[in-house]
Structure formats: C-alpha cells, structure tokens
Design a protein around this nucleic acid. Sequence first.
DNA 1: TCAATTCATTACTTTTTAGTCAAGATTGAG
DNA 2: CTCAATCTTGACTAAAAAGTAATGAATTGA
Lengths: 159, 159
Amino acid sequence: MKISAQEEYGLRCLVQLANLPSGESLTLPQIAEREGISAANAGKLMWLLNKAGFVNSTRGTKGGYFLARPADDIYLNEIIKVLDEDVLSSHCDSYTGVMDKCVHTGDCGIRPVIVGLHEIVENALSRITLAQMVGNEKTVDAMFHSIQGINRTIEPQRV
Amino acid sequence: MKISAQEEYGLRCLVQLANLPSGESLTLPQIAEREGISAANAGKLMWLLNKAGFVNSTRGTKGGYFLARPADDIYLNEIIKVLDEDVLSSHCDSYTGVMDKCVHTGDCGIRPVIVGLHEIVENALSRITLAQMVGNEKTVDAMFHSIQGINRTIEPQRV
DNA sequence: TCAATTCATTACTTTTTAGTCAAGATTGAG
DNA sequence: CTCAATCTTGACTAAAAAGTAATGAATTGA
C-alpha cells in the first residue's frame, strides 16, 4: 500500500497555505521551495486543487495561491479524493459497490479486507481537518489514538 | 492511496492455496486461471512468495505450489510486507523513524497523519490470517467492525 | 534413458505515474 | 501603455510498476 507523490505533496502544499496569516498568499516558487519540489511540479498540484475548489489564485505581481475555504472546513478525505482516485483504491473495485473487473462473482476472501481497509481509512481521514494539521503534531496524533487505541488488545495479533 | 497489483494478486494466489485440501497443490496455469491473470504473471508472484517462505513448490509432472506453513499462522501484514515495501509507504518515511528524504526537520503537519495511518493499517492487518480469509466473508468483516465500530461517532466527521 | 511437465530466473515491453518545459494569458506597478 | 511577475495549460520526458517472453533446470513416468 502506498501514498502517491501527488497525494503527499498536494496535501503538503495545502498545509503551507493553511499556515499562512489571513489575507496572505504564496507563489509557486515559494511553495516549491518550502516543500523541496520544483515550481513546475507545484504548479501542477495547485492546478488540481484550484479546479477542485480548495484554493484560489491571483495572477500578476503580488499574485499567488490561498485557501478558498476556512482550514477547519477542509477534511483530509476530501483532499485525497481530489489528488487520487479515492482514499484507498485497488484493482478490486469492491469498495465502490460496482465490481466490473473482477472474476470472483461469489464469495471472495479479498473483498472484505479491501472494503474494511477502505472503511477505516475513510473513517480516520474524515475526522482530520487542515486546521488540525497546522502547528502542533499532538492534535492529529491524539485523534488516531482515540479511534483505535482502545482496541489495541482485543484480538490476537502478530507484529 | 492504492493497493498495488502485486499486493492484491499475490494475496489472491495465497488464498487459492489456502483453499486447497491438505496435500494438494496448484500449478501456475491453474492459479492463473482462477485469478484471471497470465501464468507468467502468477509465476513471478509465486517466486516472491516462495523466496519469502510462504509457499513451497515441486517441479515436474504433478508438481505445483502449496503453503509452506499452516494458513492460520500466516498473517496479512507479513504477506503485504513481502509483496511491497511496507503495509503503507510514502515518500515521507517518517513511519520508519529514519526520515532521510524530508526537508521538514521540525514540526510537520503531515507526519502524524502518515504515522497514524501506518499504525491503523498495520494494526488491522496483523489481526487477519489467511485461514480467516477462506470460506466465509463474515469473519474478516467482523474483525474490522470490532476494531473500529465502537468509535464511529466519537469525533466530528464529514463523509 | 528420454520426453513431457512444471518451476526458476532474467531480460524485455508496455503502461502508468511522476516530473519538466515552454508558450500563452492575466494582473499590477510605474 | 508597457513590462515584469505570476498563474494556466498542454505537450513532452523520465522513472517506476506491471506484465510478457524466453531460456534453463528439475522431476516424473513410460
């Protein structure tokens, strides 16, 4: 399982904008420099995020990008769905309810695993906002522990 | 976030072997046919799984592949780590504790998200064995609900 | 022994993802 | 009005993942 470069860096760029004092904006070279990527690459990511309505931009001198909505109204699951197909996807499309591509019409050992993983990821990401990601690492950390810490020892497991 | 073809089909092939009556084995064409992939492709996957000690094989007539260990002693997190880099990986390598590639040395909004996701995926997969995946979809389904159902409404969320 | 069957391994091709480049369009400053 | 800064967009290139092919080695059965 992988988080794609597009997901990770798209999200990082949004966090940079969320960090900004109200009214300010960042140019592509500024965003790029802060995330260690090229301005061209940042441009492509911002283009996606702009189309999807997460950011707005102004051109010309003093131009740049800024959030189109308040950071506490932007949830991670929404962002990831714009930067990739879904919060979790695979060749097995069982999580969509369609299942076109699969040879397994009846019972399938894989399906509940993929559906279950999709569900826990969607569940976790739908509880995190951009606002929670700026500043202090502890906030997001606590959320993850709240949604699973209790169950740590319910079932047998091998790590 | 994506489950790679190698992960999905490698796992599928193992499930086919786990379905087998004790003492029997499957040839590459048989595995391939049951999963809708080519025999060459199946061969590559089985080669990986063989190297990693999950399956054994015999050559020649009547040859084929079979599980090297009991299905109830093979956990999903172990399998996935053989078929991919880790249960969840990304350019940000914070989940490894090393963090070579990253420009963010101090506080980072992304890190706790990646660490948290890695943890919940590892946690879930370390509770599922190959044996639980054969036969009835309900078993795995119940596990996923047991590790998160309780918390469904703890925090605000948007889906 | 010999031939058919089957796995083992490496090299190659195709497809997808990632990243770069360049020409065009808009804005603000002077 | 003109120029420089900046975003916009599509085409292009590079890298990684996925899939195919082919050659070699081991086993079985006649």
